[in-house]
C-alpha cells in the first residue's frame, strides 16, 4: 500500500546505463529525501520547523562567532575595566548607570560584552557538546554493533561494562577523570587539556545509550534473511557488520545523537557551573552562568540571566528537534 517511489523512476526510463554517475546518485538521494516521509513530517510540524530554525541560528552564531560577535571576548587586551558592569541597553542599574547600545546585553565585572560572551560561550558549549556526542556515538555504535553481532562472551563483557558505566553519574566520572588528569599533569597543561577531559567525561556517560540501542537493532537485523544471504555468499563477517547491518541500525543513532547533544550541553554547563568544567579563560555558557550568579544579589542580574536564557533556548530547541526526529523516524507512529 506504499505510495513511495513511484514518481522518481518515470524520469529515468531512458537511462540505459547501469552505473549512474555519482552526482546523479547524489541528486537522486536528495530527491528521495525531499520526496520522503521524514521531510513531509517536517513540513507539517511547526514545532520541528521552529526548533530547527532556532538550532540553525544558534549554530551559525557559534560557528561564525569571531565575525558575528560585536566584541572579541577572547582577546583580553580589548577589555577595559571602565566598561565593567554596564546594564543591558534600555535598563538602569541600582547606581543609576544607564545601559548603552554598544553593549546590548550589558557587560560583566571585567568589562566583557555579555552578548559577545554568550556567542563565544555558545561556540565552546556546542564544541564540547558535538565532540562528546560524536565520540560517544562512534564508540557506542561500534561497541553495540560488535556486541550484538558477535554475541556470546564478548557481548556479555561489553554489556557488563555498560551496566557498570550506567551506575556512575556523568558528573562523578568527570570529577574522577578531572581529578586523575589534574594529579598527573602540570597545572598549565591541565587547564589546556580540560576541554578534552570534559569531552571524554561526557562521552563516557553517553556511549552506553548508543551501544544498547545499536545492539538491540543489531540483534534484530542479524537474524534477517539478507544477513543470512550475505553469509551464504561468503562475505567476511566484518563486511557484513559494517556494510549490511550498520546502515540499517543508524536511524536510532541519529535520534539519540540529537537528544544526547542537548544532554551533553547541559552536562557541560553543570560541570562548568560546579567549577570542574572549563576555565574562565575559555568560558562556556555554564562558566558564564557560574561567574554571573556571584553578582545576582548585588543587582547585576543580566550577567547570569542572559547566558541562562541562551542555554535554555539551545537545549530546548535541540531537544524538541530530537523528539520530532524520533517520532518521524518511528514507522509505528506514522
Amino acid at each position: 500500500m506504499s505510495a513511495r517511489g513511484t514518481s522518481i523512476m518515470a524520469a529515468d526510463i531512458d537511462h540505459r546505463a547501469l552505473a549512474p554517475s555519482l552526482p546523479r546518485r547524489a541528486a537522486d538521494s536528495v530527491h528521495r529525501f525531499f520526496d520522503g516521509d521524514v521531510f513531509y513530517s517536517f513540513r507539517n510540524s511547526p514545532v520541528a520547523m521552529i526548533s530547527f530554525a532556532v538550532t540553525m541560528v544558534l549554530l551559525i552564531l557559534a560557528v561564525f562567532a569571531p565575525w558575528i560577535a560585536p566584541h572579541n571576548t577572547d582577546d583580553v587586551s580589548t577589555l577595559n575595566l571602565m566598561n565593567a558592569r554596564f546594564p543591558p541597553y534600555g535598563f538602569t542599574d541600582d547606581f543609576g548607570t544607564e545601559g548603552v547600545a554598544q553593549f546590548l546585553l550589558g557587560t560583566d565585572d571585567q568589562g566583557r560584552d555579555i552578548l559577545s560572551a554568550i556567542i563565544f560561550g555558545l561556540k565552546v558549549s556546542l564544541e564540547v557538546g558535538f565532540a562528546s556526542v560524536i565520540l560517544a556515538a562512534v564508540t557506542g555504535t561500534f561497541l553495540g554493533l560488535v556486541s550484538g553481532y558477535a554475541g556470546g562472551k564478548l557481548d556479555s563483557f561489553i554489556m557488563r561494562i555498560a551496566d557498570v558505566q550506567l551506575t556512575f553519574p556523568s558528573i562523578l566520572i568527570a570529577l574522577l577523570i578531572d581529578g586523575i588528569a589534574g594529579g598527573l599533569m602540570p597545572r598549565a597543561l591541565h587547564d589546556e587539556m580540560k576541554i578534552y577531559v570534559l569531552i571524554i567525561a561526557i562521552a563516557a556517560s553517553q556511549w552506553v545509550n548508543f551501544a544498547r540501542t545499536v545492539r538491540g537493532s543489531t540483534l534484530v537485523e542479524k537474524n534477517k534473511e539478507y544477513v543470512q544471504a550475505a553469509k551464504v555468499i561468503g562475505v567476511h563477517p566484518a563486511l557484513i557488520m559494517f556494510r549490511h547491518v550498520l546502515p540499517n541500525v543508524t536511524g536510532p543513532v541519529l535520534v539519540i545523537g540529537t537528544l544526547s547533544l542537548a544532554i551533553a550541553v547541559l552536562t557541560e554547563a553543570t560541570l562548568s557551573f560546579l567549577g570542574v568544567g572549563l576555565p574562565v579563560t575559555r568560558p562556556s555558557l555554564g562558566t558564564l552562568i557560574r561567574i554571573g550568579q556571584q553578582y545576582i544579589f548585588s543587582g547585576e542580574w543580566w550577567m547570569t540571566i542572559f547566558p541562562s536564557l541562551a542555554l535554555v533556548i539551545l537545549v530546548l530547541a535541540v531537544n524538541l528537534l530530537g523528539d520530532w526526529l524520533r517520532d518521524a523516524l518511528n514507522p509505528k507512529l506514522r
Binding site: K224, E225, Y226, Q228, A229, A230, H244, P247, N248
Partner: peptide, 8 residues
C-alpha cells in the same frame, strides 16, 4: 522477499 534484500 521483504527481508532477504538489504533495504539500503
Amino acid at each position: 522477499p521483504f527481508a532477504s534484500l538489504n533495504p539500503r
